[in-house]
Amino acid sequence: MSYKVTEDGSIATIHLDGEIDMDVTEKAKEVIFPHIEAGKEVHLNLSNVQYMDSSGISVLIESHQKALEKNTKVIIKDVSKSVLKVIMMAKLEQILNLE
């Protein structure tokens, strides 16, 4: 998994690239969580993520819940069809902020 972060004021945009599985979840958390802890609104762009398993979904849930605690939000953007299917299988499409 690779990533790119751009910051614009109170918004941090994180582009993840590759497959998100158990092997990379710690790295994903290390990339995402500090921005949430800093109170930023995080825009998580998943257009280049073609595979995500339950470990990746757990990172999305944890990010969402951390953001609520910090009175901010994580917006998941440009999710690929294959990852959207997994999010829907987990019945999270109404819980996570998808755009």
Binding site: S54, S55, I57, S58, V59, Q65, M89, A90
Partner: peptide, 9 residues
């Protein structure tokens, strides 16, 4: 909550 989804899938 995070976790517990693999077996569900």
């Amino acid at each position: 909550k995070p976790g517990g989804l693999g077996t569900f899938f």
